[in-house]
Simulated scan of single mutants.
Amino acid sequence: MILLNSNAEHIFWLGRYLTRTQYLCSIFPFQEDEAARDYAHAFCLPAFDASSLNELVLDPQQSSSFISQFQYAQNNILDLRGVLSAQGYAELNKLIQNASENAGYICDVAADCQEVLSAESEAVFLFFSLGQCVEDLDRQFRLNQDARLTMDKIKHLAAALTAVGWDGLIEVLSELETAPCSVQLYQFSDHIQTMFEADA
Rank of each mutant, 00 (worst) to 15 (best):
P46L: 00
F66M: 06
Y72K: 15
G88I: 07
A73V: 08
A90M: 08
E34R: 13
P60C: 06
Q61V: 02
A73F: 04
C44L: 04
Q71F: 12
L92P: 08
S52N: 03
E55Y: 05
D79R: 15
Q61R: 11
P29A: 04
A73N: 14
D79A: 15
A73K: 10
A86M: 07
N54R: 09
L45F: 11
N93G: 01
Y72D: 12
E34L: 06
R81T: 09
L84R: 04
L45Q: 13
S64N: 06
R37V: 06
R37C: 02
S65N: 15
N93C: 14
Q71Y: 15
L56P: 03
F48K: 07
L78W: 12
A86N: 15
Q87A: 06
Q31A: 12
L92D: 03
E55Q: 13
S85G: 08
R37T: 00
P29N: 10
K94A: 10
N75M: 09
G88Q: 08
N76F: 05
S85H: 12
A86V: 11
Q62D: 10
D38C: 02
L80T: 10
L53N: 06
A86W: 14
S63H: 09
L45Y: 11
L95G: 10
E32V: 05
K94T: 06
I67L: 12
P60Q: 10
A36Y: 14
D38L: 11
Y39C: 00
L80M: 10
N76R: 13
I67Y: 04
